[in-house]
């Protein structure tokens, strides 16, 4: 048989252990669990219907928040577009420079060929004049 005192001491240790474990757990929330969105909306609607002043204040706060969001989005979009435009300016300059350089090179190429052609015509003229100058000499006795 176990001594009653031993039982008492054992019981005391069990209770102390359970109490320590309970203390180690996080404290349970004091407020009741939040209602779902639909019931919260219903509660809010009821409150706004009951108090027009409260309703006007809620609408004003919501409008201000939406306006701030719109302004922030617009600013972000403008900043984004500005960054794109700044980045692309360089490429537009490169693109147009490349186009004009190729066009100029092609025109120079045409001009050079024209110069060569004129030089050949001049050479032919000289050859013909030389040939014409030689002919009478060949006919002389």
């Amino acid at each position: 048989m176990t001594h009653p005192l031993t039982k008492l001491i054992a019981s005391w240790f069990v209770i102390a252990g359970l109490a320590g474990a309970a203390a180690a757990q996080p404290a349970a929330p004091e407020s009741p669990p939040p209602a779902d969105a639909a019931s919260a909306r219903a509660q809010c609607t009821a409150a706004m219907n009951a108090d027009p002043k409260f309703a006007a204040e809620i609408v004003k706060v919501a409008d201000e928040a939406a306006a701030m969001k719109r302004d922030a989005d617009t600013l972000a979009a403008h900043n984004d577009a500005y960054a794109h435009v700044q980045k692309n300016e360089r490429h537009v300059i490169y693109g147009y420079a490349a186009m004009w350089i190729i066009a100029a090179a092609f025109v120079i190429f045409l001009w050079r060929r024209q110069q060569v052609l004129q030089a050949e015509i001049a050479q032919l003229h000289r050859d013909l004049e030389a040939a014409a100058a030689d002919r009478p000499a060949e006919g002389r006795p």
């Binding site: 989005d73 617009t74 972000a76 979009a77 984004d80 577009a81 794109h84 435009v85 692309n88 300016e89 490429h91 537009v92 693109g95 147009y96």
Partner: peptide, 15 residues
């Protein structure tokens, strides 16, 4: 969502 979409024609479209 307020972001610029893919069909936007930026300055590079001048090319």
């Amino acid at each position: 969502d307020g972001k610029l979409n893919g069909s936007s024609l930026f300055f590079n479209q001048k090319i």
